[in-house]
Structures are given as structure tokens and as C-alpha cells.
Design a protein around this nucleic acid. Structure first.
Lengths: 120, 120
DNA sequence: TCAACCTCTCAATAGATGTTGAGATCTTTA
DNA sequence: TAAAGATCTCAACATCTATTGAGAGGTTGA
């Protein structure tokens, strides 16, 4: 993942509503959720506000959309998320075990379906 | 890492100059670099611009500063970076192997001192 | 102590961002 | 084809962000 895309991804995730959307869509899985349902989950945000943020996320490549009947279904782009994580690890790790080591150590539990109450 | 800190970290990294500063400071290691040297590396950015961005990064917890004589030395906060990566993996992974699996697979090489020309 | 140095703080400004409301577009159902 | 539903587009507005230039606050060496 090159710098430009990483910058766009960071910008997309730096806004509370958008971060919440991504988290919601990750839990929703690859089936995704219609825009209306996402808006409901965001304390009933207006449709234009949703459209703005979903468009922002889509532009950044973090979500994709497809039409299904009269609804538009959004789902998270798993590849983009893992690319972003990889960017952080490669780009910012750069041989610094101080950064990577704790993350690697934590991976054994954090990458299974999460039951840990200390999560988040 | 809770949501608020993650949002601040994403916002801090979503700006080209600041992302470049972090990358520079990671390569600089724990000794860090004086503000002036960082400004030099940023195409000779003005001191107030540097102060603005370094303050932003420090506020987000991604860097720390210490005075050394007449210089102020900035260094990256390794803990914050690994916390951010862990946040992404835990929060956005949530049992989704589609996201984590590729990253985990890539870790074996990406976490060593980087010699890969395809990097970045 | 004085002058030079390094960095920060502050005010001003231009541009980007987030929210809202009105209305347009596309889709489904009767 | 008309009505209703779901979502998008657009303009307007308030707010936040990034940059600049001027100047202040510590620190060092003569």
C-alpha cells in the first residue's frame, strides 16, 4: 500500500462516525448492510450525512457498495484493512522489534473470534 | 487502546507531513531527532509549521519530546504505534480471518530489518 | 551580560471538512 | 403509470485545519 492510499485510509478512519461505520460493517461480515440500517445504527443520522461518510469511505477504498433492489448495500473491503495494517507494520516497523514484537505476541489470541472482555 | 485515542492517532497520521515525520522518527530510532533536523528533512519547513505538526503528533501520543541544550529532541512512541496496530487488528479483525490471515502470513518477513525493494 | 541560536506561541488567512435541508434519481409495488 | 421507498446530489453554513510571518522564551558561548 503506497503512501497516498494510506493517507486516505487514515483520514477516513479519523472521524468518529466513519470509524463506527467500519466497525459495524466488520461485524456485519461480507453480506454487508444497507445504508439505511447503517444510518439507524449511527443514532439515526440523516441520509445525506450517511451518504457523505459512506462515499468518503468508499472513495478511500475501505468499503464497497452494491445495489440490491431499492437499497444500496455497503460492506467492508477486507483487503484494504489488511493492507493498512500491513502498511503500518512494514512502514513503521522497519526493523524495530519494539513496535512489532508486542503486536506479534498478541496475535495468537486477538485473531480468533473475540471473547476477551478487555477488548476495545 | 480506546476509540478516542485511536481517532486521534488516525487524525495525526492522515496528514502527509506528519506521516513523513513519523516514518523519519521510526528510522531515527529511540535517540530521536531535534526539531530543526526534522524540519530540514521536510523540505525545509518553517519552524512554526514544524512546531504545529510536532505538537499535533505529541498531543496524539505518537511522539515524545525532551530538551537537550537548546534543541528539543523528538522521538517516536513505540508503544503508541504498536497499540494502534493492535487496535486495528483486534477491533477490525473481530474473528475475520479474511483480514488478519494475510497480515499474519506477511509478518514473518515484514518484521525483520527491511531489505525488500517492494517496500513502501 | 550580550548576541546568536533553537524552538515555541500567537494572530491572520485560505482552504478543507462535517452537517443540514431541499430536491433529484432510481426501484418496487399496486 | 402513479405512488412510495431508499439513497444520492447539491448548495449553504459553521467549524476545523494547515500555513505563514512576527515575535517571545529559554539556552549557550563569548
Amino acid at each position: 500500500m503506497e503512501e497516498k492510499r494510506a493517507l486516505a485510509a487514515f483520514a477516513a478512519l479519523s472521524q468518529e462516525t466513519r470509524l463506527r461505520i467500519v466497525r459495524l460493517l466488520v461485524t456485519a461480515g461480507s453480506e454487508g448492510l444497507p445504508a439505511g440500517a447503517i444510518g439507524e445504527a449511527m443514532d439515526g443520522a440523516t441520509s445525506s450525512r450517511m451518504s457523505f461518510h459512506l462515499g468518503h469511505l468508499e472513495h478511500a477504498g475501505l468499503v464497497t457498495s452494491r445495489r440490491e433492489g431499492r437499497q444500496i448495500i455497503y460492506s467492508v473491503t477486507y483487503q484494504a484493512l489488511s493492507d493498512l495494517i500491513a502498511f503500518l507494520m512494514r512502514d513503521c516497523c522497519q526493523g524495530r522489534a519494539e513496535i512489532c514484537a508486542p503486536v506479534v505476541a498478541a496475535l495468537s489470541c486477538s485473531c480468533e473470534p473475540d471473547k476477551d472482555p478487555a477488548h476495545a
